[in-house]
C-alpha cells in the first residue's frame, strides 16, 4: 500500500498516556498518513490535538502505544542522527555564540567541528545573520534566535526536517518573515519536511500538503493539497484561492 517514494510512513499510530489509570489521556487515536521524499507536509490542528505528540514520535523522542512509524524504510525506535529538529523555543545554549550554537549538533554527535565551520557561517549568512555570528542568544531577538535554530537543524544536512510550532512564540510580522526565511532555506536545501502548527495561513503558505487533525483524541481527518507554485511570496496570501483553502481548512477544524 505504501509507495517506494514514501519517506515517512505513519501506520495506525495511537498514543495513550497513563493507560488504565484515572489520568488516562488518549492523545492520538489510530491515525495513518505518509510523507513523500522532498515533500513539505504540515499537521494542522487545534491546541492539544496530539499533533506535537505525533511529531515527537516521528523524531523518536516518544514511542507509539500501538502502530508503527517508518522513516527512510527503517522502523523508528530511537532518535536518528539524520533528522533535523526545531522546537517551539529556539533551545540555544545561552553561553555559546550563534555560530557555536549552529555547530552544536557536531559536538553532540561527537564529530569533528572544524570542517563544518564554513558551512555553519554560510547558513547564518543565508538567514540574514551576517555580522551576528559571535553574538550570544541574549543579544539576539526572538526571530533571530529561531533563525539560528533553523541553521542548526540544517547544518548536518539531515534528510528529514521536523518542526514543532517553531514560530508560534513570535509576533505576526516576525512570523511572516520567518516563513519566508524557512521557505527559502527549504527551497535551497530541499529536505522532506514535517511541520506542526495551529496557524491555518502559515500551514497553507508553507506546505505542499496540509493534514487536518481533529480535536483530542487526534487523528488526521483531511488531506488537502496546496497547489501554489514555488518559490512563493507573501502576496499569494491575498489571492482568492489562498483564502478559499483557508476557509475550507477552518471549516474542517471546527467540525
Amino acid at each position: 500500500m505504501t509507495a517506494a517514494s514514501d519517506y515517512v510512513v505513519i501506520d495506525r499510530v495511537a498514543k495513550t498516556y497513563n493507560p488504565g489509570s484515572r489520568q488516562q489521556v488518549d492523545a492520538v487515536t489510530a491515525t495513518s498518513f505518509s510523507v513523500k521524499a522532498g515533500e513539505f507536509v504540515t499537521l494542522l490542528g487545534p491546541s492539544g490535538c496530539g499533533k506535537s505528540t505525533l511529531l515527537m514520535m516521528v523524531a523518536g523522542l516518544d514511542t507509539p502505544s500501538t502502530g508503527t512509524i517508518n522513516v527512510a524504510g527503517q522502523p523508528m525506535a530511537a532518535p536518528r542522527a539524520e533528522t533535523g529538529i526545531m522546537f517551539q523555543d529556539p533551545t540555544l545554549l545561552p553561553w555559546k555564540s550563534a555560530l557555536e550554537n549552529v555547530l552544536f549538533p557536531f559536538r553532540a554527535m561527537n564529530r569533528p567541528v572544524a570542517p563544518f565551520e564554513g558551512r555553519a557561517a554560510q547558513l547564518l549568512d543565508q538567514v540574514g545573520l551576517a555580522g551576528f555570528h559571535d553574538h550570544k542568544p541574549r543579544q539576539l531577538s526572538g526571530g533571530m534566535r529561531q533563525r539560528v535554530a533553523i541553521c542548526r537543524a540544517l547544518v548536518y544536512e539531515p534528510d528529514l526536517l521536523l518542526m514543532d510550532e517553531p514560530f508560534s512564540a513570535l509576533d505576526a510580522i516576525t512570523r511572516d518573515e520567518m516563513n519566508l526565511v524557512l521557505m527559502k532555506m527549504w527551497h535551497d536545501h530541499r529536505r522532506t519536511a514535517l511541520f506542526v502548527t495551529h496557524s491555518i495561513r502559515e500551514a497553507v503558505f508553507l506546505s505542499d500538503r496540509v493534514l487536518v487533525m481533529s480535536p483530542r483524541p487526534g487523528r488526521v481527518v483531511e488531506d488537502v493539497a496546496i497547489p501554489f507554485d514555488r518559490p512563493r511570496t507573501l502576496e499569494i496570501g491575498e489571492t482568492a484561492e489562498f483564502n478559499r483553502i483557508c476557509a475550507h481548512l477552518r471549516n474542517r477544524i471546527s467540525h
Partner: peptide
C-alpha cells in the same frame, strides 16, 4: 533546561 536535554537526545548525544 529540559528542552536542551531533549535536543541532545534528538541529536543522538550519549
Amino acid at each position: 533546561d529540559g528542552s536542551l536535554v531533549r535536543l541532545c537526545r534528538a541529536l543522538t548525544a550519549t
